[in-house]
């Protein structure tokens, strides 16, 4: 078997919002083309941690980090790293679908146009490819020029995934991508994650433990800013090592 290479890594990462110590000495290494789920109660730091991977926290007043975040072994907080370049590499999908008030087509190619790509056939090709990958193509191929806001919530979320994929990232960050969706749309998103992991490294924050079980290869449990346990999802859901993990996943917390 091929040895998996590390795609994303945190070394002794500490993060602060002003005086609040949000992440405490986090060490973790996530494999390439793997799905890692972050679980933990609200306020445990999992979203903060997720957002450090594409520097979404940079503009929050008083936010600062210590330690390293490495993407392919490169420190993404290094001075010479351009955030827009980083975000081409690391795409993100949020909890609530957030399409732009534009057509379906314009939404998907938005990132490419910003990069200066104007060739229509290139854009069309990229749009179809991304929409196919996000399992939305069949549903929207005849109405690409209609407003994205007319799509259902589940379709909007898959559109946001297509938009993230269009700029060919290698990492996809997902912050509770299915929590605002009905069970059928959730199942579609989960199937999509399962398929996408052959090409992308995916990190997903979820409050739904069953979802973590179904979609992820590895799971990280956070509590009060600490990474309590990080292991294969199988191991975590059958024999967690830490009592706090056990209490959380069995719903006996506090």
């Amino acid at each position: 078997m091929n040895k998996k290479t590390t795609k994303l890594e945190a070394k002794e990462l500490n993060a602060y919002y002003g005086d609040f110590h949000a992440l405490k000495s986090i060490n973790i290494a996530m494999e390439e083309k793997n799905v890692t789920a972050f679980i933990g109660p609200s306020g445990c730091g999992k979203s903060t941690f997720l957002r450090t991977f594409n520097r979404m926290n940079d503009y929050i007043d008083g936010f600062r980090t210590e330690g390293d975040i490495l993407l392919d072994g490169r420190d993404i907080y290094a001075k010479d790293v351009r955030v827009d370049e980083l975000r081409k590499e690391v795409g993100m999908v949020f909890q609530k679908p957030n399409p732009f008030p534009k057509s379906i087509f314009e939404n998907v190619v938005y990132g490419l146009k910003i990069q200066g790509i104007k060739n229509k056939s290139v854009l069309e090709e990229a749009a179809e490819k991304s929409l196919r990958r996000s399992a939305l193509w069949e549903e929207v191929k005849d109405k690409l020029n209609q407003s994205a806001l007319a799509l259902s919530g589940g379709q909007q979320q898959r559109l946001c995934i297509a938009r993230a994929l269009a700029i060919s990232p290698s990492v996809l960050l997902m912050d509770e991508p299915a929590s605002a969706l009905d069970p059928l749309s959730t199942a579609k998103i989960e199937e999509l994650i399962y398929e996408l992991k052959s090409e992308y490294t995916i990190v997903i924050v979820t409050h739904n433990m069953q979802q973590a079980g179904r979609v992820s290869d590895h799971t990280a449990f956070f509590y009060m800013g600490e990474l309590v346990e990080f292991s294969k999802t199988k191991t975590m859901f059958t024999s967690p090592q830490d009592n706090r993990t056990q209490n959380y996943i069995t719903g006996r917390f506090g």
Binding site: Q210, G213, R214, T233, K234, F237, T238
Partner: peptide
């Protein structure tokens, strides 16, 4: 089977 129960409920 144990893994299946744990991961897929």
């Amino acid at each position: 089977c144990e893994n299946f129960f744990a991961l897929f409920t």
